[in-house]
């Protein structure tokens, strides 16, 4: 099975701490693009990126419209826009209506990434208080990608990972502390 080309991560309530944990445990040699959608509620993710960068093993940057998703970089969805992947692995933005009361929405990122990377994608869904990401994760599995869900019992807000398990199921369901090491195993040859 060919190695994944990208990892998409979605989270909401409690997401900053969860991402800090996962990104801190990543191998700095990961060649994949990592793409994050987190409902922050703020109007600018600049500060959010700075906070993540303090912990992350890989550089963190806001995803830039039309620019390609780059390997070894954590790209963060900008506030107020949906973030999508085109089939040439470049970023698109949209101001289409909110999905699950959210823009950016995890479902939008995951579904477009699933179409762009097909089976060479890992989707990670973590703590959150609504059901965003469940249908996107199902789409990733339909296209042959790998679904990773944080164990709801371990999540600060369990409803999002639980909704994903109920709708999409998962290839891996595990506590936060084990997600980073799992990604290293899945992504490094």
């Amino acid at each position: 099975m060919p190695a994944p080309q990208a990892v998409v991560l979605g989270c909401s309530a409690g997401g900053l701490a969860a991402l800090e944990t996962v990104l801190a445990q990543l191998d700095p040699a990961l060649p994949q693009a990592l793409i994050v959608c987190c409902h922050t509620g703020s109007s600018d993710v600049g500060l959010f990126c700075e906070l993540l960068a303090l912990h992350s093993a890989l550089p963190v940057a806001e995803a830039a419209e039309r620019h390609p998703a780059r390997g070894g970089v954590v790209h963060v969805a900008p506030s107020g826009y949906h973030l999508l992947l085109e089939t040439d692995h470049r970023f698109s933005l949209s101001i289409d209506p909110k999905v699950c009361y959210s823009r950016p929405a995890i479902d939008v990122l995951f579904a477009s990434a699933a179409a762009a990377y097909r089976e060479r994608l890992v989707g990670v869904l973590m703590t959150g208080a609504n059901h965003d990401g469940a249908s996107g994760l199902a789409e990733i599995r339909r296209r042959g990608g790998i679904a990773v869900v944080q164990d709801p019992q371990d999540a600060e807000a369990p409803s999002m990972p639980q909704a994903a398990l109920d709708l999409a199921g998962a290839d891996h369901c595990l506590p936060l502390q084990q997600i980073g090491p799992l990604l290293n195993r899945l992504c490094l040859p």
Partner: peptide, 9 residues
Amino acid sequence: YSPASLKRR
């Protein structure tokens, strides 16, 4: 049009 958003719509 950018295909990803168009397809979603």
